[in-house]
Design a protein around this nucleic acid. Sequence first.
DNA 1: GTCTATACCGAGATAGAC
DNA 2: GTCTATCTCGGTATAGAC
Lengths: 199, 199
Amino acid sequence: MQRRRPTDDLLEALLDAAETEFAARGFEGASTRSIAHQAGAHQPQINYHFTSKELLWQAVVDRLFSALDDAVDLSTDASPSAVMAEGLRRFVEFSARRPELNRIINLEATRDSSRLRWLVEVHLRPRFAATSGLWEQTLAEGRGADMSATEVWGLLTAFGALRFANAPMVSMLEGSSSLDPRTHADRLLGILFPEEATR
Amino acid sequence: MQRRRPTDDLLEALLDAAETEFAARGFEGASTRSIAHQAGAHQPQINYHFTSKELLWQAVVDRLFSALDDAVDLSTDASPSAVMAEGLRRFVEFSARRPELNRIINLEATRDSSRLRWLVEVHLRPRFAATSGLWEQTLAEGRGADMSATEVWGLLTAFGALRFANAPMVSMLEGSSSLDPRTHADRLLGILFPEEATR
DNA sequence: GTCTATACCGAGATAGAC
DNA sequence: GTCTATCTCGGTATAGAC
């Protein structure tokens, strides 16, 4: 006799499956049928619980960013440059552990759409602003490379995360040499804080 | 009375439209109907001329890489480091001018598939090998930053190209500040060749 | 809340007249 | 080579019994 699974568990299972599928195949490529099947549910339950495929996608993205915040946020009174450095390190580690976030972002980023607009306005813009502010403070502190906040953001999302987002391609190309996230973060910090060239 | 369009023109028009669509929506998201329509043709002509959607996609990728080679290849007897630097510069400029190539690569890179395998074996592996060899020579020459060829490749594809591949997102986030490719290439060269820190 | 059945649509591919 | 008509399949969403 099978116990009825609590609703919250089903929602989590659907979100887990959707996260994987959206990250692997993109919004259009993913199928709600196969997401439901992977979660041990039936396809109409997705519409029942999330109303539409698009809202399911938003729920997945919300959950990913909230996991990112948990992983990165640090309440400390350290100096801006120290907060920046530690935040970068955690971002790289999160991107390696949970590549789905950057996959989904990159999959949407190539074309204007309502989904992309939502992603930028709700999630990216505030984080971009916070990161920029922190970098400005770092510069004011007299540390960090001679780069604008925009360039730092670009380096962070490109160099820091792309390798893990594109892991299937990278491992096909390089063999399973699987770069250690810590080493990768060190490399990024070496570029952003060249003065501390020790290591 | 409408003259019949030469076959080659139709093939080019179909490839143009397919390039845009595949780069914007990914393989699964793109529709052969809309590609044909954009090229002023009918959907069955795609199957007639290219046999299948997958082979159309391959033809698009072949054409893009061949444009890249035209843009980057330099037969010169300059030193490896000079060839490397100039090649990087041209790669960045090509990526800005023709973002479709890196879009298509990134869209496929997040999941193992027969398309990704074909892309890696036919196009990426030889270019990765050539770039690595050139970087090794650069290092032997006593120039270049202390990075492995793999790291250089990663920096190149990530920092050099992603910004342009993700242009719709970037301009949404930063306004139409549209970074100049030359400046961007300078920044990349500054990281790879730190000794020449003049500029 | 769950599950079956199904409506409805758009996809890629193919047949066959021209 | 082109174009219309159509086959078949898989997609999302919905209706309605349980």
